[in-house]
Write a protein that binds this DNA or RNA. Structure first.
Length: 592
RNA sequence: GGGGGUGUAGCUCAGUUUGGUUAGAGCACCGGACUGUCAAUCCGGAGGCCGCGGGUUCGAGCCCCGUCACUCCCGCCA
């Protein structure tokens, strides 16, 4: 064990094997039980907890023990002894032994805690826990999450190192690119008026490494995106970034499968490779999302043809206008839902983006409880295979919007009605993404993945004539409805790259100004290459069965991007700004 | 930018339904008792800008308006 024996000869849990020995432990006071005569202290270090017992004979030590407070840092010495049979604690890994302490040194005394370390059942509110994150990290659950994260990283590195991948660092101060997420910017003091951007991913650098002949690169690296936060999204996060030369899609996929099998094994989850594949088109059609959760059914069904003849004005109008009428069946969900619940479901659908929602619940003898007159829905339960007590939710809209709403409702309803099995793991490759998508607001084509993604070779000829039909050599890996990572085979032909940039509205001059360095590099001998990036935080969150990405990060930020511990972000001195040539136009933040 | 939830002692929460005396409990804290506990127990004490601001009212923790913080979701996140 690393560490001077001045402080300890064993860890708290390790000492359990040292019965009969003289033992010294250091750690935090977990709990104190003072019986007037005999006094017990549970001392805790990273390994866990050991019970100390102080007897009145241990003069000096017991007086000090009676004065201890939770979280005092102490060093104790004594004899490891087995406990009497009657006092064994089966709920504690070290419950068969105890340290009969006769020397106690308080290394540091602690002020009263802002919240209890030992009572993990009482979760203090998250802002307070983040303000005192270093106290919260002492809790078992936090500690184990970080240990798991470390183990997952080690497992991933082992796979990549075995395969000859080289860990190479890329710059954090780099160039802003207009596509994708909003950049975090850093002013350049030596070139006032110019800015660095923090990387959204090392995308271009890893391609340049391939052109540089590295052949196999990986990096476990921080990335930055200035967008709104979510339970599974932080402004700075970690990617497992991978790129390889002379590879095809299947090579990357099987490598990533080996990585994920090893990573999930750290959490006791056995995954079977190869993972199933599904095309983007199928994913959207069946599940209304490009990252389907396959742990449950509730597939989207089409009722457009029948709806066109239903007699219901909304349905007929939508279908005539080129839209669709589609729905999902939630087994057993309708039986317990009141009119108020069902109205709430309609409101929820509208908040998600639906214009409306028609619900129906088949009852006894073919009766139908529904939000519109049952006559309009004749044949619907039969067509959808709905049984008595099931909930049928139907949306009529443009195809894209209907699929989107139903996709979201599908997940929410499955969750709410307990249709998601515990400890189920359903990995999936989604492939065959379109190269570009039409951006109606901006009236232009946007990259689905990013502008360096290669079209399938057989589609290159159609890039100009029918851009929307071009399929990309891109692939996402999905687990339980969460996107774990995505990648692609990259363009390695400068001409095709130029055409890809032109397709998303970048003329030759602009392309040259922004990505001239890449185009030039592609002209100087670029091997075929491709790769993928995994979201490490999300991956660990899944393996840890955590509810939030924050649970597997040591120092996460709040939903408004703040760090209650350090107070970041914060205003800076005028002198600092002047030195950088930066002026602030925003009003000063209100004092807390 | 939009929708929902939360905010009362250091912490976790009750009190808000139906406005009405001095706002309670457990843990933590301070003092005391206790020789085998493991959420130790028992006795006593201290601790409150009821998030903040405004309004209604004879009277507001409770009703109304605004605002802030945290949180979940939509938008956003190549």
């Amino acid at each position: 064990m690393i560490g001077s024996s001045r402080y300890r000869t064993h860890t708290c849990v390790g000492a359990a094997d040292a019965v009969g020995e003289r033992v010294r432990l250091s750690g935090w006071v977990h709990r104190r039980r003072d019986h007037g005569g005999v006094t017990f202290i549970d001392v805790r270090d990273r390994s866990g907890v050991m019970q100390l017992v102080f007897h009145p004979e241990a003069a000096g030590a017991i007086e000090a023990a009676k004065g201890l407070h939770p979280e005092d840092v102490i060093c104790v010495e004594g004899d490891m002894v087995p406990r009497d049979a009657a006092t064994v604690n089966d709920r504690l890994p070290t419950g068969g032994v105890e340290l009969r302490a006769d020397r106690l040194e308080v290394l540091t005394s602690a002020a009263p805690m802002p919240f209890s370390v030992e009572d993990e059942g009482a979760e203090a509110n998250e802002e307070l826990r983040l303000t005192y994150r270093y106290v919260e990290l002492r809790r078992e659950a936090r500690l184990r999450a970080l240990e798991l994260r470390g183990a997952v990283v080690r497992a991933i590195r082992a796979v990549l190192d075995d395969e000859g991948f080289l860990d190479v660092e890329t710059p954090m101060l780099t160039r802003s690119t207009p596509e994708g997420a909003r950049d975090f910017l850093v002013p350049a003091r030596l070139q006032k008026g110019s800015w660095y951007a923090l990387p959204q991913s090392p995308q271009l650098f890893k391609q340049l490494l391939m052109i540089g002949g590295l052949e196999r690169y990986y990096q476990i690296v921080k990335c930055f995106r200035d967008e709104d936060l979510r339970a599974d999204r932080q402004p700075e996060f970690t990617q497992v970034d991978i790129e390889a030369s002379f590879v095809e899609q299947e090579d990357i996929q099987s490598l990533v499968e080996r990585i994920l099998v090893a990573a999930f094994a750290e959490g006791g989850v056995t995954l079977t490779a190869p993972f199933p594949r599904m095309t983007y088109a199928d994913a959207i059609r069946r599940f209304g999302t490009d990252r389907p959760d396959l742990r449950f059914g509730l597939e989207i069904q089409d009722w457009s043809a029948q709806a066109a003849e239903s007699g219901l004005g909304v349905f007929e109008g939508v279908v005539k206008g080129g839209g669709v009428v589609r729905g999902i069946v939630v087994p057993g969900a309708g039986a317990g839902m009141s009119r108020k619940d069902l109205d709430g479901l309609v409101a929820e659908a509208q908040q998600i983006g639906a214009k409306g929602l028609v619900w129906a619940v088949p009852g006894e003898d073919g009766a139908l409880r529904s939000s519109v007159k049952a006559d309009f829905l004749a044949g619907l339960p039969e067509a959808f295979g709905a049984a008595e007590g099931d909930l049928i939710a139907v949306v009529a809209d443009r195809e894209r919007d209907a699929q989107n709403v139903l996709g979201m409702l599908r997940g929410r309803l499955a969750e709410r009605h307990g249709l998601i099995p515990d400890d189920a793991w359903e990995p999936l490759w989604v492939v065959g993404f379109p190269l570009v998508e039409w951006n109606e607001g901006e009236k232009r084509w946007d990259s689905t993945h990013h502008p360096f993604t290669s079209p399938r070779p057989e589609d290159v000829d159609r890039m100009e004539s029918d851009p929307g039909a071009v399929i990309a050599d891109a692939y996402d890996v999905v687990m339980n409805g969460l996107e774990l990572g995505g990648g692609s085979i990259r363009i390695n032909d400068p001409g095709v790259q130029q055409r890809a940039l032109a397709l998303i509205g970048m003329d030759a001059d602009e392309a040259d100004a922004r990505f001239g360095f890449l185009l030039r590099a592609l002209e100087l001998g670029a091997p075929p290459h491709g790769g993928l990036a995994l979201g490490l935080d999300r991956l660990v969150m899944l393996i840890a069965r955590a509810a939030s990405i924050r649970d597997v990060m040591a120092f996460p930020k709040t939903a408004t991007g703040g760090d209650p511990l350090t107070g970041a972000p914060a205003p800076v001195d005028d002198a600092q700004l002047k030195e950088l040539g930066v002026a602030v136009t925003a009003p000063p933040p209100a004092a807390g």
